[in-house]
Design a protein around this nucleic acid. Structure first.
Length: 108
DNA sequence: GGTGTGACGCAGG
DNA sequence: CCCTGCGCCACAC
């Protein structure tokens, strides 16, 4: 009962949120877990690696802004297409692209 | 039940 | 920029 979202439910939670991240913005694994109030960065990363293929996975990155090793070409193309602010070649400018989720104030 | 692993995060050196 | 250690937690063996 009192469990905290088991497998399937958690996956739906994560994917559902990732789908809502606006184009041109990103969230870190930790942000997703924190916003969901369940699981942690590693759980989010696990879900993304296993079931993230159907959602804009490039909008979920590590806290250092680094894009996914091995998927840089895809990610870079998506960022260019969405106008995501980058910093250097393989990093997203979190200062500007980080999305905190739907907050009681506004985004940005 | 112990051990290893990982699309993590952060502090240190 | 690199690497190491530690905390974290679900999962495979």
């Amino acid at each position: 009962m009192g469990r905290v979202k088991d497998g399937e439910e958690y996956v739906e939670l994560v994917l559902g949120l990732v789908e809502r991240i606006p184009a041109g913005r990103v969230m870190t694994y930790g942000d997703v877990a924190e916003y969901l109030g369940a699981g942690g960065p590693r759980q989010v990363g696990r879900v993304m690696s296993l079931q993230g293929g159907g959602v804009p996975w490039w909008r979920v990155i590590r806290a250092d802004g680094r894009m996914l090793p091995g998927h840089e070409a895809r990610a870079r193309a998506a960022y260019a297409r969405e106008g995501t602010p980058l910093r250097g070649e393989d990093r997203v400018d979190l200062r500007r692209a980080r999305w905190e989720g739907l907050l009681p104030g506004d985004e940005r």
